[in-house]
């Protein structure tokens, strides 16, 4: 069993090994396959198709499995590695060590938003964007969105999500009026800042992170490792509550066939939310 560390506690040597493995996955094509999977399974909730990754209860278990698959690839290259997590309520500045040259590199430059520092800067020659929503072949960021400033979620906004007694609620989509899943995923059901937790982090980073090909930015993995840890925290806080819906939705429910209940398989891996409820024996989080 391995440990996912808080990124702020990584040594210089650990950062170097993590970055080296990312570059190797990029070089051999594995990385872009993962970017495509994320984009392919983003289905907005006006559509009547199955939604697994977003705007649905399986937001947490789907991303847990997605990260595990990615982490397995990292560990196949270097068994000492795991995905670090980024607590954005505390490391909430564009000058945090997370964005230093020896780790993820910094924000994009003015104009075209191109990241020019660190190992993922285009000019270093190791990080070309192949799954594109814009024409840019280079990684883009816009930390804090200076033109229209945005703040990362606060500890209080996060706590409000963790305090939700229910996991999720009907209609199980981006308009779900309550529940931990939508409070944390962050679709402003009534439009307000506290409803934007996870989504706002994507917006704060900007550039590729705001689009369907968000995992083009390696910050994606650290953000979602923290989201994964938050699911643990919610479970610990509400031991009597569990994943919902816990059985397939009845005939006549408009969300039937569009969301995944506890024992239904999630594509593309055919694992159920129940199988993802715990990661005991697989990995643990550093306190």
């Amino acid at each position: 069993m391995h440990t996912r560390q808080n990124q702020k506690n990584l040594t210089g040597a650990q950062k170097k090994r993590f970055v080296a493995a990312l570059l190797e996955l990029k070089r051999n094509g594995t990385y872009d396959e993962f970017v495509r999977v994320h984009d392919r399974w983003f289905v907005p909730d006006r559509e009547t198709k199955l939604r697994v990754g977003h705007m649905s209860p399986s937001f947490f278990p789907w991303h847990r499995r997605y990260l595990l698959e990615f982490e397995n690839r990292l560990r196949a290259l270097d068994p000492g590695l795991s995905i670090p997590y980024w607590d954005w309520t505390t490391d909430n500045s564009p000058v945090s060590s997370l964005w230093a040259d020896d780790f993820l590199g910094g924000t994009g430059r003015e104009g075209d938003r191109r990241v020019t520092t660190g190992a993922f800067a285009y000019d270093r020659g190791n990080w070309t964007i192949n799954v594109r929503t814009s024409e840019a072949g280079y990684l883009t960021r816009n930390l804090g969105r200076p033109q229209n400033p945005i703040k990362l979620p606060t500890a209080a906004e996060l706590q409000w999500a963790l305090d939700a007694p229910l996991y999720d609620s009907d209609p199980w989509d981006s308009t779900a009026p309550d529940g931990f899943r939508n409070r944390l995923e962050g679709w402003a059901a009534p439009r307000s800042e506290k409803w934007r937790n996870h989504n706002k982090v994507h917006q704060w980073i900007g550039g590729h992170m705001t689009g369907g090909a968000a995992p083009n930015d390696p910050a994606f993995w650290l953000h979602h490792a923290f989201v994964d840890l938050l699911w643990d925290r919610w479970q610990q806080r509400h031991p009597g509550a569990g994943y919902l819906p816990d059985r397939p939705l009845p005939l006549g429910d408009l969300q039937r066939g569009r969301v995944i209940s506890l024992d239904e398989p999630m594509p593309p891996w055919d694992v159920t939310p129940r199988e993802m409820l715990s990661h005991q024996g697989l990995y643990r989080y550093e306190a």
Partner: peptide, 16 residues
């Protein structure tokens, strides 16, 4: 706002 000076891709990746 998000694109800055960058242009959209000619063909965007496809969803499920």
């Amino acid at each position: 706002d998000e694109l800055g000076t960058e242009r959209l891709a000619l063909a965007a990746p496809h969803h499920g």
